[in-house]
Design a protein around this nucleic acid. Structure first.
Lengths: 221, 221
DNA sequence: TCAAAAGTGTTTGGGTTACACCCATGG
DNA sequence: CCATGGGTGTAACCCAAACACTTTTGA
C-alpha cells in the first residue's frame, strides 16, 4: 500500500468536541475562547485540525485534540455529525468538521486552557443552545448533541463509560435525572432497569451510610 | 477570505451512498461492482471522491456522486456517519468516507451503471447486512442505515420526500409495512397518524377504483 | 426513637394491539 | 348483490407514572 498523492485537492479537515458534564446540578457544555482568527475572541467548541500523520483514525484524532485542548482524554465519546462546505472557515476555501460528543465529570477535568485557547469555561446547555453569539454554527451542534444524549438516557441506553464502575440505583437515578434535567419516578425507573437487564447486583456489596445500606450494581454483560 | 494552503496533509475524502428502495416487496440496497482497485470486482456501496472544486457542501457532493454513478439525484437524503483512518483504502495512506442514506423508488432509477462501475444491482437488505464479502465495512454501514430508517418509520417520522405528494392512508400504510418488513394494524396506525397530525386530508380529493373511494392525504405543514 | 435513604406494592391512565364490524363503490 | 378496499368502534393488554408504604441502618 503506497501513499499516492490524490489527484484532487482535499478539504481542510477539523475535529470538534462537544464535551458535556453536569456542573452545579445542570447539564453544561465546555466552551473555549478562541485566541486566533477565525472568530477570534468568540466562544466555541474546542477543536483542532485532523493530523493524518499522528491520528490512526477519527476517534483517536478526537482524543488527541482533547488532550491538547483540555488536558485529558474523554470517556463516552460518540460521533455526532460532520459538516462540510465552502465558506465555513476563512483558513481554507472548503472545510470539513467532524464533531464528537463526550460526557465527563468535573473532577476529571481541570479547566486550564490548552494550546490556542485563551480560556475554557462551562456553560449551561439551556443557554448555549440558544446562544447565537457562539462561533460558527456551534449552538446548533450543541442542541442536537444534547437532544441525542437525552434520548439515549430516556430509553435507558446508559452512558456507562461515564458512570463509575459500581453504583447504587439511587446514584444511577440521580445521574440520569441530572442529565435529563427532570425528575424520574424511583419505582418505574427500577422496573424498567430490570426489565432490560442493563445492570446487575454485585453479590454482597453494599454502600453504607447514615441509613439503610444500598445494594451496589454494575453494568450487565 | 483567501484560500491558504493548509499546513498539514488532508485525508483522501470520499462520499458513499447507501441507497435503499423497496424492490419486489423487499427493502433492498443498491450495490455497484467495482471496476477498479481497491476491491476490484467486489460489490460495494456506490461512491466517489469529494470534489471541493465542484461541491458547495456535503449534501450537494452526495447528489453529484449520485448523478455520476446512478444517473439521478436522490430524494430523502440523510447523513449517516463518517469513517476515517489509515489503511482503509490503498489509494491513500489515510482516507475518510462520509456516508449518506437515501430512499427512492425503482421507477425513478434505471440501473445503468455510471462511471467506474461494472454493474449495479439491488440486493435484499437482509442478505446484504450479513454479507461479509462486501467491500470495506459496507455491510455494517448498511445494517445501521436500515435500522435508523426503520426506527424513523416506527415512530412515524415518515419519509415524505420519498412518498408521492398525495396518497391514501392505505398506500401510506403499505409503504410503511414494506419499509419495516412487517404488518401494521390499520386502526392503530390511523389513530397514531392523527394524534401526531403528520398528514391532512385534501378536501374533496379521492382515489377511485373498484371499491369505496379513498380520501387522499398530503403531508401536514 | 428518629432521620434518611433503600426498596416494594398497588392503582391509575395513556396508548397500542387485535379484531370485529360497517360503509361505499364498480362490476 | 357481491367482492373489495376504505373506514370506525371496542375490549384487552402493556407499560410507565404516581404515590403510598415498609425496611434497614447510623446517630
Amino acid at each position: 500500500m503506497s501513499t499516492v498523492k490524490p489527484p484532487y485537492a482535499m478539504p481542510f479537515t477539523r475535529m470538534e468536541l462537544c464535551v458535556l458534564s453536569v456542573i452545579d446540578t445542570k447539564l453544561s457544555v465546555l466552551l473555549g475562547r478562541r485566541q486566533q482568527e477565525p472568530c477570534k475572541g468568540y466562544w466555541a467548541l474546542p477543536g483542532g485540525v485532523l493530523r493524518i500523520d499522528l491520528d490512526p483514525n477519527l476517534e483517536r484524532a478526537a482524543q488527541r485534540v482533547a488532550v491538547e485542548r483540555i488536558g485529558t482524554e474523554l470517556p463516552y465519546l460518540r460521533q455526532q455529525c460532520c459538516i462540510g462546505g465552502s465558506g465555513r472557515d476563512p483558513r481554507s476555501h472548503w472545510s470539513l468538521s467532524v464533531v464528537y460528543r463526550a460526557l465527563t465529570t468535573m473532577e476529571n477535568l481541570q479547566t486550564t486552557p490548552g494550546k490556542r485557547l485563551e480560556a475554557l469555561r462551562w456553560c449551561d446547555v439551556d443557554l448555549a443552545m440558544k446562544d447565537a453569539s457562539l462561533a460558527f454554527d456551534h449552538h446548533q451542534i450543541i442542541a442536537t448533541a444534547v437532544s441525542d444524549l437525552r434520548s439515549e438516557v430516556s430509553r435507558l441506553d446508559l452512558p456507562f463509560e461515564y458512570l463509575s464502575a459500581e453504583f447504587t440505583l439511587g446514584e444511577l437515578q440521580e445521574n440520569c435525572e441530572l442529565l435529563l434535567g427532570r425528575k424520574l419516578d424511583k419505582s418505574s425507573f427500577r422496573r424498567r432497569l430490570d426489565d432490560r437487564q442493563c445492570v446487575e447486583a454485585i453479590e454482597g456489596a453494599f454502600k453504607r451510610g447514615a441509613n439503610r445500606p444500598a445494594q451496589l450494581y454494575r453494568q450487565s454483560v
